[in-house]
C-alpha cells in the first residue's frame, strides 16, 4: 500500500479523474452546472474561480464526501457516485487532500495527525509508521514539530503538516484546497515549491483549487529539477515553459468558462477571464 506512487501501469495520458456533465446544488442554490473536465495521470490542473464559485465543491465530489445530482465522476476509471461509504474508503485511500486551513485534528499530536491513516489501518507496526511520519515531515521541513500539538503551530506550519498528512501512504492523487490563502509571501513560496516538487519529481496527479492568480502562475511557470546531489533546483522558463502538464480550468457561476494552458488563459478574450487576470 506504500510507495506505489509511480509504478502505475500504462503511460501518461490515461485519465485519473474525470467529470462528465456533473450537476450539484444545495437546496435551491445551484453550485455546479454541467461541469466536465478530465485530469490525466501525472497532470496538474489548476481550478480558478472567485469565492463561492464551486471550486471546493469539486474537491469534495472527487473524494465522495458529497454526491452529485447528475453526471458521472470517474476516479481511476471507476464511477464513484453510486458507491457506498464503505466502498468509498478504498477510493479515498488513493487520494490525499490538503484542506484550506490544514484541518488538523486538535486533539491529536502532529505525529498522530500525520500518521492518522496508517494508525487507523492498524496493519502497519508502530516503528514503520514512525519512519513514514518522519519521512513526510522531513519532506515539508517540519521534523522537529513531531511532538507538538496543532495549537502550538503557526498557520503556515499547520498547512505544511496538512500536506504531510495528505502524502502519507504515497497516494497517486493529491487535492489542494486553497493551500496558499492568507499566508505571508515566504510561507506561500515554501508551499508552492512543495507542490511543484510533488508534481515534477514524484509524478503526483494534482488538483489545485485557488483564487490566487499569482500562485497559479508560479505553478505554471516553474519546474523542479533534481540537481544530482540530493537537492532540488527550481527553474523558471517564462510563460508555462516549466510545466507543459499544467492545465487551467476557470469557473464562473458554476460552469466552466475557460479550459487550457497558462498562455491561453492570458490570451483569452472571455470577459470574465479578462476581469480575473487583469
Amino acid at each position: 500500500m506504500v510507495g506505489n506512487r509511480d509504478c502505475g501501469e500504462g503511460d501518461m495520458g490515461e485519465p485519473m479523474i474525470e467529470f462528465r456533465g456533473v450537476h450539484k446544488s444545495f437546496g435551491d442554490e445551484v453550485i455546479l452546472r454541467d461541469v466536465s473536465f478530465r485530469v490525466d495521470r501525472g497532470d496538474a490542473i489548476v481550478i480558478l474561480g472567485a469565492s463561492g464559485s464551486g471550486k471546493s465543491t469539486i474537491l469534495k465530489l472527487i473524494l465522495g464526501l458529497i454526491g452529485p445530482e447528475e453526471g458521472e465522476i470517474l476516479v481511476g476509471g471507476r464511477d464513484i457516485a453510486p458507491l457506498s461509504e464503505r466502498e468509498l474508503v478504498e477510493v479515498r485511500r488513493g487520494i490525499g487532500m490538503v484542506f484550506q486551513e490544514g484541518a488538523l485534528f486538535d486533539s491529536l499530536s502532529v505525529r498522530e495527525n500525520v500518521g492518522y491513516r496508517l494508525f487507523e489501518e492498524d496493519a502497519v507496526d508502530e516503528a514503520e509508521i514512525e519512519k513514514a511520519v518522519r519521512r513526510e515531515l522531513g519532506f515539508v521541513g517540519l521534523e522537529d514539530a513531531i511532538d507538538k500539538m496543532p495549537a502550538q503551530l503557526s498557520g503556515g506550519m499547520k498547512r505544511r503538516v496538512g500536506i504531510a498528512r495528505a502524502l502519507i501512504g504515497s497516494p497517486p492523487v493529491v487535492l489542494y484546497d486553497e493551500p496558499t490563502a492568507g499566508l505571508d509571501p515566504v510561507t506561500k513560496r515554501t508551499i508552492l515549491e512543495l507542490m511543484i516538487r510533488l508534481r515534477d519529481l514524484e509524478g503526483v496527479t494534482s488538483v489545485f483549487v485557488t483564487h490566487d492568480l499569482h500562485a497559479a502562475s508560479v505553478m505554471a511557470g516553474e519546474r523542479a529539477v533534481a540537481d544530482g546531489g540530493g537537492g532540488v533546483r527550481f527553474l523558471s522558463g517564462g510563460d508555462g515553459a516549466g510545466a507543459a502538464r499544467n492545465r487551467f480550468v476557470m469557473l464562473q457561476n458554476g460552469g466552466i468558462c475557460f479550459e487550457g494552458d497558462y498562455p491561453g488563459l492570458m490570451r483569452s478574450t472571455d470577459p470574465y477571464v479578462r476581469k480575473f487576470v487583469s
Partner: peptide
C-alpha cells in the same frame, strides 16, 4: 460543531474513518 466548521470531520472521512 467546531470539528465540522474547521473541516476536521471532512478530513476524517477523507482519511477513511467513519
Amino acid at each position: 460543531g467546531s470539528m465540522v466548521v474547521s473541516e476536521q470531520i471532512s478530513a476524517m472521512r477523507a482519511l477513511g474513518t467513519d
